[in-house]
Design a protein around this nucleic acid. Structure first.
Lengths: 128, 128, 128, 128
DNA sequence: GTGGTCTAGACCACG
DNA sequence: GTGGTCTAGACCACG
């Protein structure tokens, strides 16, 4: 499915969240599909079950997956999410921080926009 | 100069780094300008001196500031930085994570590109 | 008869208990009426027979239904139940927890009382 | 401060949440007040720090407390919360379940309303 | 088999 | 000192 990068700056929990999200966005995981069980994923990634549980908890709060007790965890139906202004501000700060860093590395605004476009090509199957 | 947002998701150390960087990019701090001493800045921001020391250490390694013993800390001359591929990968991961989150909040690729442009307008004085 | 909501916060077992109770209170199920067998109900609700067995066990201990071996399970005659002080304390704690949560959501005491009245209108046929 | 009731039906985590909430509602804990540290509360209640961390995480998501890294955890300023319809439905189901149980124990609608009023007298200092 | 709660305890970041 | 992340592993509820 995917693996954990120990060198990655992101926390293990975040890596799991991002990877699942990416697979849902790409359509590899479709609404209704069962995601690996907490134990399965934990052993696949050789991380602790608590860490997977925490990641799944975050994804559930974001309505990306839903859990049916005793049955397993499934990709949720896509719903229109209301925008949390607080969360949006956090993302803007993170984006700004990344942009400034890239600016320092010699990237122009245009270069950054092209980076973003490349990122989108990487995770969107097709977009009209 | 600037202040620390205790509620901010970013660590205090990162906030200091970002703020100094932003002022240098904006030209508020120019090469050769003296930046506050670790103790001054720590007391201005009411944060621990260790935190400022760490932030300055990062900025120094990135050649954004330089310390002259007994004199103080100054904004470094702008040099063309060699791109650290490892660091670039980290930034790409962070950008991708933010983009996916925005995608989930209903932002289209175009919306995200416009966000980036707005961010650039915020920290670049003028760019042709 | 009724169905199980997999998303419901309540355990499946509790949902079954509550639904049977509600039907008895509403008079849809009357004393002496036969309720579905464990297997029937389990297949109707597509839940595990263990879960229905457990729910029926609880209802039996509360004297709401009674099982006659070889015949089936029936709604019990209404008897004046002695109040289990321990159970009453549990319910009070649950009610208090719900009230505090509603208080936090901006509900006044009056709003909560009206909620309770609405709930009663929902499950009592008529009460003078 | 308070203690954990091992006999209580509620999970330890929920008991902590409810107790903190109650103290904030009662005004024993006021906005800006520091709540016990994760370690302090864990040792006071003789529970694991992870359990307290989890409870504090829930309270933070509900904007009842806020954490300042390295400083501690504090009671948040009261803000008008938007009502989460999903959460409200859950509370209604819990209330209905409790009401049916009380009905079975011989409580009339009036008795239940009086219970609610008593609960409010218990956790509200004064209400106009 | 599934997820959920909890303990015991390590290690990290910030003060 | 503060909280945050993570591991290892037990035990419970539901299937």
């Amino acid at each position: 499915m995917f693996s954990i990068d120990v060198i990655d700056v992101r926390l293990i929990c975040e890596q799991i969240i991002d990877n699942i999200k990416e697979q849902v966005i790409k359509g590899i995981l479709k609404p209704g599909d069962q995601v690996p069980s907490v134990r399965q994923l934990a052993s696949m990634l050789t991380v602790n079950t608590n860490t997977v549980t925490k990641a799944y908890g975050h994804l559930e709060r974001q309505k990306i997956i839903e859990t049916i007790r005793g049955k397993g965890t499934f990709v949720a139906n896509i719903t229109v999410k209301s925008i949390d202004q607080h969360e949006l501000q956090d993302i803007r700060k993170t984006l700004k921080s990344s942009c400034m860093q890239l600016h320092y590395m010699g990237f122009s605004k245009q270069d950054v926009l092209e980076e973003i476009i490349k990122i989108y090509e990487g995770f969107i199957k097709e977009e009209k």
